[in-house]
Amino acid sequence: MHAAHSIASGMGGMRTTGDLVARLQLNKGMRIEQAKQYVADKLKVPVTDLADSVTMGEMREDLNIGVVNEAPGVAKGIDAKFRIAELLDLDINCVDMFKDRVKP
């Protein structure tokens, strides 16, 4: 069922920018058009590219914000989220907590 919805209607998560758009929905309460526009502006791409796995896959690689097929040395998990927080100018709870934990 989840795979079917993802294919029929989903943004594609980390394959594209679905996770970034979802962050704006969940933590800023932005509706889809506004959230997509926000992400597109930050990435400097047209909204129409946001759900494309080729364009966004390359962009994710360039920005080092996490990719599906991880290679050695690329950002994984929390380190990708540090970059996402900066890129989207957004507070991410676990990133803020991590910073607090390692504060001298």
């Binding site: 989840h2 079917a4 919805h5 993802s6 294919i7 029929a8 209607s9 989903g10 943004m11 594609g12 998560g13 679905g18 758009v21 979802a22 929905q25 969940l26 889809i32 959230a35 909204v47 129409t48 946001l50 759900a51």
Partner: peptide, 21 residues
């Protein structure tokens, strides 16, 4: 057999009880 939204209409998915599925 399967249909999908037009390009540009893709939306975000959230789940219930994901780690029990």
């Amino acid at each position: 057999r399967v249909v999908g939204v037009d390009e540009g209409h893709e939306c975000c998915l959230s789940y219930d009880n994901m780690t029990s599925k």
